[in-house]
């Protein structure tokens, strides 16, 4: 792949993010494919080196993309938050389609699901099945959009509570409450299929 002039690209994305921040919603359309392309490239690099039992954090990929696009200078906080919000959606899209592709390779269903992530907490939670999470998250979003968004921002982009609060314009305590409920709901919903 030819060397890209990162500065040029981050300029475009910055402009788009500014557009987004100032409410021009269609700016997201342009940014999305670009982000997805960027994330996919990085994700592919990770996934290629994956060995069985291995995993990665989606937020790590998002971070890497952020650095790659804006590394030297970074973004204004506002724009940065929009970036992560978009990136969360993009990341989710990529991972779901990757998981689908892999599950179809194995001949259907995700009863023998492919585990892509491992939350790196030392407490050793069970692996999360992307497709299950995706489906459950869809349902949750239909029931409570804000909870769904919070999960997306936290899990796929790795935003902190304070940052999520900033993006959504609500208080930190609200975010924590909603997050707790959402997590419990999802975990309960995803039930036994969660375990590997």
């Amino acid at each position: 792949m030819p060397d890209r002039n990162d500065e040029l690209e981050s300029d475009d994305l910055t402009l788009i993010l500014k557009d987004l921040a100032s409410g021009k919603r269609d700016a997201g359309d342009t940014a999305m494919p670009m982000l997805v392309a960027e994330l996919t490239a990085i994700a592919r690099g990770y996934l290629r080196h994956q060995s069985p039992g291995h995993s990665l954090q989606p937020s790590a990929l998002v971070n890497e993309t952020y650095v790659k696009l804006f590394g030297k200078d970074g973004l204004e906080f506002n724009d940065r938050m929009h970036f992560f919000a978009l990136a969360a959606k993009a990341m989710r899209q990529i991972l779901v389609s990757h998981a689908r592709k892999r599950s179809s390779l194995r001949g259907g269903g995700h009863c023998e699901q492919v585990s892509v992530f491992e939350p790196p907490s030392d407490k050793g939670s069970a692996d999360v099945d992307v497709l299950d999470l995706h489906a459950a998250l869809e349902q949750l979003t239909m029931l409570d959009e804000r909870q769904g968004t919070i999960v997306e921002l936290r899990y796929f982009s790795g935003l902190e509570v304070a940052e999520v609060a900033e993006v959504l314009g609500i208080s930190k305590s609200t975010v924590e409450r909603e997050w707790r409920v959402a997590r419990a709901w999802l975990g309960h919903r995803m039930g036994p299929s969660r375990e590997r």
Binding site: Y46, H49, H54, S55, L56, Q57, P58, S59, A60, N63, E64, Y66, V67, F70, G71, G74, R80, F84, P119, P120, S121, K123, S125, A126, V128, V151, R154, Y155, G158, L159, E160, R180, V181, R183, A184, W185, L186, G187, H188
Partner: peptide, 28 residues
């Protein structure tokens, strides 16, 4: 939900994701 919350409070949590801008290696 309560049972789950008690058993697995770290579900979906991701550590060390907050250093936005800190490049993460193939850190696995």
């Amino acid at each position: 939900m309560l049972a789950f919350d008690e058993a697995d409070p770290a579900f979906l949590e991701q550590a060390s994701a907050s250093s936005h801008g800190a490049p993460v290696d193939d850190d696995s």
